[in-house]
Design a protein around this nucleic acid. Structure first.
Lengths: 155, 155
DNA sequence: AAAATTTATTATGCATGCATAATAAATTTT
DNA sequence: AAAATTTATTATGCATGCATAATAAATTTT
């Protein structure tokens, strides 16, 4: 198992989680991405859509499309933000709240089961390694500064 | 940092790796997925396309589309498999080989830098947790057996 | 051997992420 | 205050993953 790369393991693991989340979400008529979005919306007050991107690690442009389809499906309503003429406030419909709870169950169950099968120390270490990876990338410690120069490595 | 869920950390980390890989790949005119595919193709002999899916953790149907675009871009050629009239053998073109080397550099660099910043023990543990997660999912230990029944949890 | 099943591939549609471009509304500079 | 810049949003195009359906070639059953 040590002959696989770190990226491969990460990708395979994330993809298997995503596949599972999507299958579960299908049972109640949504998708993983819709579920994540529902969970980022405050069920009580209007949520400015600007707050969703950072919370979910998504670009505003990706979100815009998801919000549009969620509105069409009757999960949310979008109202102009009275405090900012450019902005939008997101509200859950009762239907959206229902699906939010369903989504929450799936996420909680996954996290619970993993925690039951991994020691706290292992989990802390797991988070730490991911933080390290994220840090290395955001600090540009991995990007090649000289990709162009390296282009002929091989011949 | 402990207030984020396991799925969120995994997703964010994988996405940041993917974003970085795609930016790097853009420098030499490919994408991450194309790079992974190139790396799964044997540079010396024809690779049956059936072997790619399992190696890459992708559905044959997803691959088919990528292979098509790779052929159009001149990275590979597809020839009928003489041993199986249904199958196809993939060959790298010289151009494809070049891009394969570029892709390899990026993957090697990422893995190298991460290893320089994480102890071997931490890395082993990291792999172990991912194996556990994958195992739990493939053994269906996470899926709800009773999603339908749970649907009304909330009211 | 003929019929039924499985396997390999492709085409298509849908969802999702990114990038880019456009637009309108703030905000900051001058 | 007017001009320039930034910010929030949307539309669109491209890539990628999945699912489903269709087709042709093996393989297995009968």
């Amino acid at each position: 198992m040590k002959d696989i790369t770190i990226d491969y393991a990460l990708r395979a693991t994330w993809q298997s989680v995503a596949r599972m989340y999507n299958e579960e979400a299908k049972n109640f008529g949504t998708t993983m991405a819709v579920g994540f979005t529902l969970l980022s919306i405050d069920p009580k007050t209007g949520t400015p859509s600007t707050s969703l991107g950072p919370k979910m690690g998504m670009e505003a442009t990706s979100l815009s499309r998801i919000l549009k389809s969620m509105e069409e499906k009757g999960l949310i309503t979008r109202k102009p933000n009275p405090e900012d003429g450019r902005g939008v406030l997101i509200y859950l419909t009762p239907f959206g709240l229902e699906k939010r709870e369903d989504s929450k169950d799936v996420v909680l169950r996954f996290n619970e089961v993993v925690r039951q099968n991994v020691s706290e120390e292992e989990l802390n270490n797991f988070f730490k390694v991911m933080e390290t990876i994220n840090g290395l990338i955001s600090e540009k410690k991995i990007y090649s500064r000289n990709t162009k120069l390296n282009n002929n490595h091989h011949q």
